[in-house]
């Protein structure tokens, strides 16, 4: 088993505001890591650091064994951002066009060939939106749209799937289906990093938990997390914790 993400003593600040302080953690191939923490705790920043969207002020980050700023196998990472950061809301782009983007890193400046198109078809099939392929992304429901983004990540044949609160604004039923899909992808060997504000969902699905609030309060398997005090320490005694039981 090889290490997918290796973070050592990483600190990152926006100007004076420290978002991530001295965090070290590793993610192994096949892990399903839930990344949790209160609002403004630096979860998204940590994810962005892992993906190379920010450079750390100190410490080192390796992706698939390469320093993150030298890593150039873009197709190995599938990324589903918080909904608000994509222009799917207004731009006339079809589901198929969006999913094809997953093949762009493979194709370089060339055209997508038949094999690429077949992979796109498979990705649409896997997430169950083949019948929506010609619809505009902005005409989809929240759940369908997130499936389209997952399909894009699948089309890139990513080894690492990074998801930042993918189910915000998605109805409960589609959310359950969505997490079942993540489970089955994980069972096929895809490494998953998931930011999710609903701690119940994370502890149900993820096999590892990293709990942060600037600093790393806990990193280990889900069982050890549930038994630890990391949650109340990270969220503070009066913290608002979304917690539900199945």
């Amino acid at each position: 088993m090889s290490t997918v993400v290796d973070i050592q003593n990483v600190t990152f600040a926006y100007g004076e505001n420290v978002a991530v302080r001295d965090v070290s953690l590793t993610i192994e191939e096949g892990d399903f890591l839930g990344l949790i923490g209160p609002n403004g705790s630096g979860k998204t920043t940590l994810l962005h650091l892992m993906l190379g969207l920010h450079s750390p002020d100190s410490g080192t980050i390796e992706l698939f064994g390469d320093p993150v700023d030298e890593f150039d196998d873009g197709e190995r990472i599938g990324y589903v951002s918080q909904k608000a950061t994509s222009r799917g809301g207004s731009m006339p782009v079809t589901v198929r066009e969006a999913v094809r983007m997953g093949r762009f890193a493979h194709a370089g400046f060339g055209r997508l060939d038949d094999e690429d198109e077949a992979i796109v078809d498979d990705a649409l099939e896997t997430v169950g939106i083949t019948d929506l392929a010609d619809r505009r992304v902005n005409q989809l429901s929240g759940g369908q749209r997130q499936r389209a983004y997952i399909a894009r990540a699948l089309a890139s044949e990513a080894d690492l799937l990074a998801l930042d609160e993918p189910t915000v604004g998605v109805d409960a039923e589609s959310r359950d289906e969505f997490y079942q899909l993540l489970d089955s992808l994980n069972q096929e060997g895809i490494t998953i990093v998931l930011i999710e504000h609903d701690i119940g969902v994370v502890t149900d699905r993820a096999d590892h938990i990293a709990c942060i609030n600037q600093e790393l309060y806990h990193h280990g398997d889900t069982e050890s997390f549930v038994e630890s005090d990391a949650l109340s320490e990270a969220y503070g005694a009066n913290g608002q914790v979304v917690h539900h039981h199945h």
Binding site: L51, G52, L53, F71, D72, D73, G74, E75, I77, Y79, V80, S81, T85, S86, R87, G88, M91, V93, A98, M101, F104, A105, R152, S156, A162
Partner: peptide, 11 residues
């Protein structure tokens, strides 16, 4: 369409 995802894909 999605600048962040494009960055992650190393464009």
């Amino acid at each position: 369409f999605d600048e962040q995802a494009a960055r992650v894909a190393r464009l």
